[in-house]
Design a protein around this nucleic acid. Sequence first.
DNA 1: TTGTAGGCGTTATCAG
DNA 2: CTGATAACGCCTACAA
Lengths: 352, 352
Amino acid sequence: MSNMKQIAKMARVSLGTVSHVLNNSANVREPVRQRVLEAVSAVGYQPNQLARGLRRDKTNMIGMVIPDITNPFFPAVVRGAEDVAFANGYRLVLCNSDNHHSKELAHLNELRTYLPAGIIVIPSNFSDLTAQAEVYRRAGTGVVCIDRLPKNWRGDSVTVDNEQGAFQAVDYLVKLGHKHLATVTGPLHLTNAKDRLAGFNRALDEAKIHILPEYIQEATFDKRGGYLKTLALLHLVPRPTAIFAANDMIALGALLAIREGGLRCPEDVSLVGFDDLDLGETTNPALCSVSQSGYQLGASAASILIDRIKGDDGPAKHVVLKTSLTLRNSVTTPPEMSELHLVQPSNFVRRH
Amino acid sequence: MSNMKQIAKMARVSLGTVSHVLNNSANVREPVRQRVLEAVSAVGYQPNQLARGLRRDKTNMIGMVIPDITNPFFPAVVRGAEDVAFANGYRLVLCNSDNHHSKELAHLNELRTYLPAGIIVIPSNFSDLTAQAEVYRRAGTGVVCIDRLPKNWRGDSVTVDNEQGAFQAVDYLVKLGHKHLATVTGPLHLTNAKDRLAGFNRALDEAKIHILPEYIQEATFDKRGGYLKTLALLHLVPRPTAIFAANDMIALGALLAIREGGLRCPEDVSLVGFDDLDLGETTNPALCSVSQSGYQLGASAASILIDRIKGDDGPAKHVVLKTSLTLRNSVTTPPEMSELHLVQPSNFVRRH
DNA sequence: TTGTAGGCGTTATCAG
DNA sequence: CTGATAACGCCTACAA
């Protein structure tokens, strides 16, 4: 591969001058500058990022550690981050932690040795990343956590308003007349799962609806979890007329359980999910869901990181993105009162 | 960050000895070896990958260029590649080309400057990557193309048997009695789209069924493309009783078009997709689809690459993965003969 | 078996 | 404004 020395020789200048031209670090005379530039494009020279990074003590890589790219919510997050990073000259190194804290730590430790310009993490379960982040911070490298926050996190973060999103969804169900509500939550050690449950509870509180603890089921954030815990809910007496699923994968499992139980959605059981994944549009019935922008989540994180790289050393930023409720056919009025004409709450987005 | 010099000082040995211990490049006496190892773990030392890469002229990064991580088929591919790479000590640098050849080239060019151990590419439209690959080859860096092949590709590749997969699907439709078949293909400059069309045609040929050219519609590999071209198909007289969609996103759009046209799937129109994405399980009706393993695609590619890194310099490998047909409810016998009892072809996987 | 030194490609500092 | 030179952290002959 061509290097600066060759360019210098071709342009009949010294190595230092080539560097100056490439980095605009000195006002090189125009004719000389031209000679260098010509040589550069003649051989298609591109600076060796390894050498540059070694010397500058910083590369143009941004490390991103996520639980699992295979989870349908994360690709958009990655894409958002990559777009912003790329537009600013940064590249993404992607690592899957599989929600294993040890794998997450291993990635974080190794990524350091690439001298990345910054790190974006969607924390795995249980993780306290303070120590790791501190190591990066000391090296002047920003770390931003997104989607969920690790224990005691005091650094930059981007999340969505999970509490409010859940509240809005459940409040909608309440306004439709549902009194027997239930929820399948995510793993409650995750902040987002916890916050969504909090929103669920607040909506019930405000409506002065009390439910028994067994109407709140904790599951993993996947189809299987949703399926199993929904089965449990459907066996309760009285059977819930509406279920709030803490994410769309859980909702998918819930749909399956409802169908298998010989019940109809939404006639017998209304269902609301969270995430508004594309696949919710094509289920039967189409899934009503709290919409959050994964893309924005990733893009904001990268954006914060780039500000930090540019020198912003202000206090920790905590961006909280808004959610909206996307209405689709998986929700209707509760069975007993389906003949009543209810006012449709405003302020919601209707699609298809 | 700690470096070898510090470790050397702590262990009261020279810098070279530390290196020898770390790389097993010399038989260091056990007590000395221990001292070094202790120092290493005491400060959590990890070698700087930039320096190591610069020196060795090769890093442990594998560059992966894909069209768009947001496309539901690709995450599994990436995951497969990452798993195998990670297990062998390699990390993935992910780049999205958006199917823009220029962006693809830019990524490929820049990736070189990281001195990656290898490159995995899902080629974008129209791309001839021979020149780029040659540059890598000269540097001793392997490049493997997957999913689709660029023009004139002579290097390593992993693809699925698109022709056979499509054949199997269409043959199934034919055996069910369908005579009025149609297909919505992908962009025919892509090898996978072309091969799937070839399989479609072979199945018709073997059954001696002739169709007019307008029963073959070319679309982009997405929902919108599938929707528009299916609308066109449904207006033809006679209307096709079965449609083979070249991928599941097209099939999703087709489903939408069928529904909007006031028709029922599968009663009026049978539909088969390609990819067997998860979302096909939850559509209404569930989508019959040719199943291919994206994970395996990525994993095989990484595996070939690692062989190359280890020194395998044999002739180009062309791995072709098998497909299978996953039967679901979007397919039935054609309308006119729905009362006939037809023998179910064997050799198919039935799910749910 | 252990230590020394040169250099990978780049940037930054400092003379000229 | 331009050019020489010393690092950055590591590996690898080669020397001891």
